[in-house]
Nucleic acid binder design. Structure first.
Lengths: 192, 192, 192, 192
DNA sequence: AAATAACCGAGACGGTACGTCAAGTCTTGAG
DNA sequence: CTCAAGACTTGACGTACCGTCTCGGTTATTT
């Protein structure tokens, strides 16, 4: 993509916003592979060329749209022990993924084939929140390496449930995930 | 799909095979969303009609092809304790997923939107091996509910690693998964 | 263009007709360079691909449409001498060119660049009527080589008048062309 | 087009020249309907705006470029009779047309539809040289009205040969045109 | 000297049409 | 009824130019 070089008429940022908005809306409405540039352009009230000037293809557009979107912030550490904080963070994560990441996951799966660059981009985005997320856990109760373990297991199980089991991540599931999996794994002094 | 009713010229089973073969080959070559019925027909040396007579659309075809494909069987239980058997089963699972399920995952993600029927179909297929798989684990060392936990965690972490981390599932990772996650979770008498 | 090979569903001849009709109509309405395949398809009630299956591009389509179109037949030889027959034939030719060849001329000029094949095609079409035309002239009054001379001069002057002078070819002009140019040139025994 | 009013920064005449040059070069290279303003601007090293400030559209630009281009002057009258002068003038005319008018003709045909103003402009340009041309012919040998007849027939037959017959205008053709057509028509005392 | 007015390059923008591709349906003729 | 071949409609693709419109910056003339 030819980056805007500063000379010439500057790009209209309202168009960027409109495109992102339309893309995200349609993404959640129809899913990734039913998503068409044509429809995004129409919804955004923008010419197709205006999109193609910015993004090489659908994958790049979705990546940008998702990156720019700001999800809600991870919850502040709460009073109480590790378990309470795990419940808070996992609950937040489950909602976050459930709400809008699904379309993104489709983009990732569908697009990473034949476009390693996109795959990397996606992974970068996905990792973005992880640091902030694991910071919320109280260090003193954690086993060594627990943060990595959390990032490895928690999103995996949540995504797996949503996509492969096709079930919601309700309160009960969050408690199950914390009590039966994460808490035993992460708390200090349990490693065999 | 109009099931063949028995009268008239019978369907040529060699065509079914050729179609499946071509579909799976192209699936791993180009990925799900670059997969075209047109190309499958060409590769299989078969008319498009012959495919549409059998499957409603691309999703159904892929589902059938994946279902019919026989992966290698899960390993027999080995002498030794739970850990050895976990290593064997997880190693097999990782190879299985790594080798060819990726295209299927793309299909699942991309297709489940707007086609709940397909999603269910896919889930049914995915669950098929799980029973056989968990049967391989020695019951006497397992905590109660361990089989479900295994099915919930192991594939999730493997898929997550491949897709989101974009890393291989080598021997080292398998040991890590078993020793740091599965073994602590599943062995009898560890539940708090 | 892949010629239809006989096997498979045959092309629908009514579509050919509709396409030709729409092309000729739009050609005379808007001219060659304002002519779009898209509009032809819409007018003919036919998909764009159905046109592109038959013709490589606009030029080829116009060539075919013009070729297929049957203009009126040249007039029968009339009683009377050479001059009367010349008047009849030239009058017919002028009307023929004036009515609908103009768009074709545009196609020819615009398209022969970069497509020698089309140019040849066009020339073939243009020459088609000439033989029939010159047959109408009474041989016994003609100087040797008069038929070639007629074909060389008469269409040239008519086209030149329409296009370059931008004037109609009325009765007066036809008489002028015959009396002042063609008759002196073609009648036997005048060669110096 | 807003004519430059004298105040403000004056237009850069070198740009006019560059635009004309590029236009004519591309015109002969790719033909009229493959000619794009975008390409002309690129070739001339000039912004599109700079062209659109001067010309309403492609047709106007081509018209101006062709008008400004100076072809070679018609030959001086030579010693000898009418035939020799005809040979000289027709030879010059054939070369002139053959060399570079073809693209112009395409412009004319393609553009006169829907732009009568352009057509008139073109005709004006085409007629420009005719007066000078016919002045070269020795009046005393000419039949009355011969100049008009020459202008009517000679360019017509030349253009027709190039475009419709697709053949070169070599020495032989020039002699044929003069001896078999123009000389008999134009010389004094031959009119029946 | 400043103000004004037009020129200029660069490129965004909404459009229109291009020519291609694949989807899924339909039609023919042969088996 | 199956099958191969291929026509057909539909709809999106990504590209190319169109002609218009900002921008920032550059000359000239006019005040």
């Amino acid at each position: 993509m030819p980056e805007p070089s500063g000379v010439g008429r500057p790009r209209d940022v309202r168009r960027d916003a409109a495109i992102h908005e339309a893309a995200l809306a349609l993404l959640t409405e129809v899913g990734y592979d039913q998503l068409s540039i044509e429809a995004i352009a129409a919804r955004a009230g923008v010419a197709k060329t205006t999109i193609y000037r910015r993004y090489r293809d659908k994958a790049a557009l979705v990546a940008a749209a998702v990156e720019q979107r700001q999800g809600s912030a991870p919850p502040e550490p709460v009073a109480g022990g590790l378990r309470e904080n795990l419940l808070a963070v996992v609950g937040w994560l489950a909602r976050e993924i459930e709400e809008q990441e699904i379309g993104l996951l489709g983009a990732l799966f569908a697009g990473m084939r034949g476009d390693a660059r996109l795959a990397d981009e996606m992974r970068r985005i996905l990792r973005r929140d992880q640091a902030a997320m694991t910071d919320r856990l109280p260090g003193e109760e954690l086993a060594p390496g627990a943060a990595e373990l959390f990032a490895e297991v928690a999103p995996a199980v949540i995504v797996h449930r949503i996509v492969f089991a096709g079930e919601r991540c309700d309160e009960r599931f969050v408690r199950h995930l914390v009590d039966d999996i994460l808490f035993p794994l992460l708390r200090k002094g349990i490693q065999s």
